[in-house]
């Protein structure tokens, strides 16, 4: 189930990156796992979901990748900590997770998942911890950088 959801999320991000920013991406399930994958300044977008399953989606990247995505989405040059970068990432994560959750909800299980709005976190040496959760990670890459998608579902035994 977790793997299926992760595939939905990764497919959705690849599609949204292409449609919104014109960035051609590919994704792979081979990725390191949390915590603290990215060194230096890390940008994280965190969305929770509730419904038949509870959990969270974390989109993680370094600040340079965040800046490139922000510039591609805004179609202008931005400084490394420009607020517009983080608004763009917030919107991007809301759109790709929203599309993936809709697809999951319309699938055979119909889990009725509801998404929370994204939280954007920026910091050095970020570590993320979620209790009682089974974690799966995918990496989405394009020529400008690497994005990790971490999906965790509460009650990992169900996976």
């Amino acid at each position: 189930m977790g793997g299926e959801y992760l595939a939905n999320l990764a497919d959705s991000l690849v599609t949204v990156m292409d449609k919104m920013a014109g960035l051609t991406c590919e994704w792979s399930e081979k990725a390191p796992q949390l915590p603290a994958i990215t060194e230096g300044v890390t940008v994280v977008s965190l969305l929770g979901f509730t419904g038949a399953e509870k959990g969270r989606v974390v989109m993680e990247m370094d600040i340079e990748t965040a800046q490139k995505i922000g510039e591609a989405l805004n179609q202008e040059e931005l400084g490394p900590f420009d607020k517009m970068i983080f608004y763009a990432l917030s919107e991007l994560s809301n759109i790709f997770c929203g599309a993936a959750i809709t697809q999951i909800n319309n699938g055979p299980r119909r889990p009725g998942l509801r998404l929370t709005p994204p939280n954007i976190l920026v910091g050095e040496g970020l570590e993320i911890f979620g209790e009682r959760a089974h974690l799966e990670t995918a990496s989405v890459f394009w020529e400008g950088g690497l994005i990790y998608i971490h999906l965790s579902l509460e009650g990992g035994a169900a996976l």
């Binding site: 965190l46 509730t50 939280n119 910091g123 050095e124």
Partner: peptide, 20 residues
């Protein structure tokens, strides 16, 4: 209101854009 599982974040120079 439903709540999601809590997530703990640690790090230095932490900036948080909470939801909206």
């Amino acid at each position: 209101a439903d709540i999601t599982p809590p997530t703990l974040i640690t790090g230095s120079k932490l900036a948080i854009m909470a939801g909206s």
